[in-house]
């Protein structure tokens, strides 16, 4: 109950951010729409046979984001240097490894973080198996048991 209230409030604040107009009619419309969509999304999840809420350790997630941004910047700079250097020093590799996350959300965050970091792309993401394409062999070797893996696993501890 509290969780669905939270997500309804999230939807309503999404509306307010989009709208930026605080006329009574529009506020009421936004409130109605947020509730309607909350109910509809319950139906969405029910038909897809999924749980409706996302379990996540939000405190750790807030710490995780800046770290990810830093990783992205470092990796993007590295890839840019490789693109611009005339010899094109790349050695693409595919690696398979076992991620240590258990829940859907943790796995998806890990996979998306891998893809977001330039130089590595998660090709397949399933429970207990990741297949990652990397631009360099060095980048591929450092993936299994990396700090990203550890941090994503921490996110799951609610």
């Amino acid at each position: 109950m509290i969780r669905s209230l939270v997500s309804a409030v999230a939807l309503f604040s999404f509306w307010l951010l989009l709208s930026g107009m605080f006329v009574p009619f529009l506020l009421a419309a936004g409130f109605g729409c947020a509730i309607a969509i909350k109910l509809f999304s319950k139906r969405l999840s029910a038909i897809a046979e999924e749980s409706d809420v996302l379990e996540l350790n939000w405190g750790k997630f807030i710490v995780y984001c800046p770290w990810l941004v830093e990783e992205i910047i470092v990796a993007a700079w590295d890839v840019s240097k490789r693109i611009l250097s005339p010899r094109l020093p790349i050695s693409p590799a595919l690696v398979e490894f076992v991620p240590s996350q258990k829940t859907d959300v943790g796995l998806v965050i890990h996979a998306n973080s891998i893809t977001l970091t330039p130089g590595t792309i998660s090709v397949e993401a399933e429970h207990g198996r990741f297949l990652v394409h990397a631009l360099t062999e060095g980048g591929a070797k450092s993936l299994a048991g990396s700090e990203m893996d550890r941090r994503c696993a921490e996110l799951e501890e609610v």
């Binding site: 939807l11 999404f14 947020a34 969405l44 897809a48 999924e50 996302l54 998806v108 399933e126 429970h127």
Partner: peptide, 18 residues
């Protein structure tokens, strides 16, 4: 596909609200 399912769960309500 795991990634797409989670993305859909997050995005579809947002698309409808939009």
């Amino acid at each position: 596909d795991l990634v797409l399912r989670v993305l859909g769960r997050l995005m579809i309500p947002a698309i409808l609200l939009f």
